[in-house]
Design a binder for these strands. Structure first.
Length: 585
RNA sequence: GACCCCGUAGCUCAGCAGGAUAGAGCAACAGAUUCCUAAUCUGUAGGUCACAGGUUCGAAUCCUGUCGGGGUCGCCA
């Protein structure tokens, strides 16, 4: 249960009742009146701005509304203190017993704690990675993969019906290039000296493997044939090999896509033609000449009539080409068909996770989704900014030309998928991120992965010791849920409890905002509160978790430790990181 | 030239749907270790939230403009 929702509905009920009794004008809009934790804990446990937001529509003074509401709130069972502060905030202090009983619920729920019905089973598709099948995933792909995956888990936790999807760009010029490059490597595998790789083909060594596999399967049957004979077959072969690597890499990262959808299949099924016909029928296409981009050299520019989509009618800055000069559809046209396909499959809510270099593409895609779904579809695009790879403070040199880029697999091999996943969520997605191979594996306060894992391991350590000391007592969450917690009275203990109980709210707000990084930051807060409490016990031994000859207090504290461990595990589960039970240098 | 993202403490960054005295970590300074893992913790100091207007009872947050950094800009995907 989200404790804030609990008080929110109580507040809403009071407002309704005040409305119907005439104390407040009827039909007043109270949607902006919210219950939230105050920034400063000294102001109380929860606060509401209700009096301030209602003052204007009600035509009353905030103070008067506050007085009226406060009077009602004083009657609430859980509340011990109500005060009006500042411009009209109502601050509530909640009885410790309320928090303690909520901790019992937490323990009963276990790792499922924090799950919410907010999404009401609404279908949402998260499309991410979608790297072109031209080579193995490189380090930069990791960020989008992790942000997308964590976001998908987060939405699932918040009660949405989530589909994870990868869009394979297996149509178009790039995969033709892969096919030709593979053909060259195939000839090489059959003993031919191919010299240097010509301009315009992929030089990467990784295609050797594909060429060899092809030679093994087909022998010399493609030698001396015309390109139009071998290209479709070899292209398909290469794509399937490369997609095999990509799926393997995603597996190592813990990413499990439900659907891999093919651009080529979509095109061949006529989906693009169909959409374009529809747009044509709605008079949203026309032939025109685009202005040259002003910052670019006009050398290679010549005005050329093209088939354009009226993106400006849906919020874009210019109309966008949907047809190349050779008459084939642009990538944009295919993408429109793909997004309509998502919508038709029941996903009116779509989230795409893209790299920052696609920023200029967002407006037109949103415009297209609006146009093609009649305003019913909603597309949110999460742009992931660049990742700067560093090693001990120095940038890692990478060159795509020289083929010396760092693959995602290199990174996983070097630091492990858990570290990679966590670090990728320690920044907002639209902020550039520095990834330092040395720092992320350091065992220090500076390293958030370690810090959170250490807190989890400490919980585990305490429980392990306790189990020995108490001769194998049952310290599971369900057992500890029935323990009396009245002896937990220290502010640090209550503070930790309240923080743990904010987990469901964190899930909901992060899901609402589509911001999985908030989970990582929240876990850092939980870890800090726990480490703090731990050290308090170092200074004041009466605060230690295991108290000799006071089993009631010990059990209460163990329940809190178990609750902490549970919430950390639950949070790590959302971001796809394995909690560790032990840390050794 | 246009569009998108960013600009918060010396450094790296949070800041939840506009809320009260803007928060962490690092670095600096002062402390805590016969003890459940000190790989940690406590405290001090550090701010014109780039700048200027606007909306509002209230703005780091929303709007407009300016400056600075990054990304992108027809026939690549």
């Amino acid at each position: 249960m989200n404790v804030f929702n609990h008080f929110q509905s109580k507040l809403n009920a009071e407002l309704e009742s005040l409305s119907s009794s005439g104390a407040l004008p009827a039909g007043i809009d109270a949607s902006r009146a919210v219950v939230e934790p105050p920034r400063d804990p000294s102001h109380g446990d929860i606060a509401t701005n209700a009096a301030m937001v209602l003052a204007k529509p009600a035509g009353m003074k905030p103070r008067d509304i506050a007085e009226m509401l406060a009077e009602r709130m004083r009657g609430w069972d859980e509340v011990t203190e109500v005060e009006i502060a500042g411009p009209g905030f109502i601050n509530l202090r909640i009885a410790d017993a309320f928090w303690r009983s909520a901790v019992a619920d937490l323990l009963k729920a276990g790792i499922a704690y924090g799950a919410s019905g907010m999404g009401k089973g609404r279908k949402v598709m998260v499309e991410y990675v979608s790297a072109n099948p031209t080579g193995p995933l490189h380090a930069a792909h990791a960020r989008g993969a992790i942000v997308g995956d964590a976001l998908a888990s987060l939405l699932a936790k918040a009660g949405f019906d989530v589909l994870r999807e990868y869009y394979i760009n297996d149509a178009g010029a790039q995969v033709d290039t892969v096919g030709r490059s593979t053909y060259l490597r195939y000839r090489e595998a059959l003993g031919e000296d191919i010299g240097t790789i010509p301009e315009g083909l992929y030089p990467g060594e990784y295609l050797k493997e594909v060429g060899e596999a092809l030679a093994k399967r087909d022998g010399d049957k493609w030698l001396g044939k015309e390109e139009n004979e071998w290209l479709p077959e070899i292209r398909a072969f290469a794509i399937s090999e490369i997609m095999g690597w990509i799926k393997e890499d995603l597996g190592l990262l813990g990413v499990d896509m439900a659907v891999y959808s093919s651009e080529k299949a979509l095109v061949e099924a006529g989906a693009v033609d169909a959409v374009m016909e529809t747009l044509e029928g709605r008079d949203l296409l026309y032939t025109g000449v685009l202005e040259p981009p002003k910052g670019k050299k006009p050398d290679d520019w010549e005005p050329r009539p093209q088939r354009l989509f009226k993106a400006t009618e849906f919020g874009d800055d210019v109309d966008r080409p949907i047809q190349k000069s050779d008459g084939t559809w642009t990538y944009f046209a295919n993408d429109i068909a793909y997004h309509l396909d998502k919508y038709r499959r029941g996903y009116a809510d779509m989230i795409d996770v893209w790299g920052a270099d696609h920023g200029g593409y967002v407006k037109r895609m949103k415009a297209a989704v609006k146009a093609v779904t009649g305003g019913e579809g909603d597309l949110d695009v999460k742009l992931c900014q660049l990742v700067h790879l560093m090693d001990g403070g120095k940038p890692v040199k990478m060159s795509k030309r020289a083929g010396t880029f760092v693959t995602m697999r290199d990174v996983i091999d070097s630091v492990g998928k858990d570290v990679l996943r966590f670090i990728m969520l320690t920044r907002r997605n639209d902020q550039t991120l520095e990834f330092d191979f040395k720092k992320v594996t350091e065992q220090s306060r500076e390293n958030p992965v370690f810090y959170v894992q250490y807190a989890h391991a400490r919980c585990h350590s305490v429980l392990r010791h306790a189990e020995e000391a108490l001769n194998g007592a049952d310290l599971s969450g369900t057992a500890l849920a029935s323990v009396v917690l009245d002896r937990l009275t220290d502010p640090a203990e209550l503070g930790l409890m309240k923080l743990l109980l904010a987990w469901p709210r964190t899930v909901e707000s992060a899901a609402e905002a589509h911001e999985p990084h908030r989970i990582a930051f929240y876990l850092g807060d939980v870890a800090a509160a726990f480490h703090g409490l731990w050290n308090k016990g170092k200074e004041d031994t009466t605060l230690r978790f295991l108290v000799d000859e006071d089993s009631e207090l010990t059990m209460a504290r163990l329940a809190l430790v178990r609750a902490t461990q549970t919430v950390i595990a639950s949070g790590l589960d959302v971001i796809g990181v394995e909690p560790v039970e032990e840390l050794r240098a």
